[in-house]
């Protein structure tokens, strides 16, 4: 299908490569990490520091392999961090220092 050849990788409706893949319908509880990322995103939106559309844009711009390999909230924290860096809320130097525990 020509349209399918033009789809962005997150635009999954009807995507042939997933049509024969089963759906895992078992419940999977969220981890503390998941819930914290979710709450942090909500706080950043409430404080007008990022929109949900920026979150989505950041997720959509992940390389396709990462998009499918990373967990749902792993994608979110990458997009959140990317957005905060873009807006200068955080700088890369600050982030590197914090990651090194300084």
């Amino acid at each position: 299908m020509d349209k399918e050849a033009q789809r962005a990788h997150h635009d999954l409706g009807g995507a042939s490569k997933f049509m024969c893949e089963s759906v895992d319908i078992e419940p999977h509880g969220l981890t503390d990490f998941d819930r914290e990322v979710d709450a942090l995103r909500q706080m950043l939106a409430a404080k007008k520091l990022m929109t949900v559309d920026e979150l989505r844009r950041g997720i959509e711009s992940l390389p396709e392999a990462d998009y499918h390999r990373l967990s749902y909230y792993q994608r979110w924290i990458r997009s959140i961090t990317d957005t905060l860096l873009r807006h200068g809320v955080l700088t890369e130097d600050e982030l590197r220092a914090a990651l090194e525990g300084k």
Binding site: K3, A8, D11, G14, T51, E54, R57, R86, H87
Partner: peptide, 28 residues
Amino acid sequence: TPHYVRGEVGEIVRYLGDFPNPEDLAFA
């Protein structure tokens, strides 16, 4: 706008309201 519906003909069911364009919101 999902890829699979581009170029397709449909019917307006109802107007849902005005909302800020997400294509701009996504880039602040």
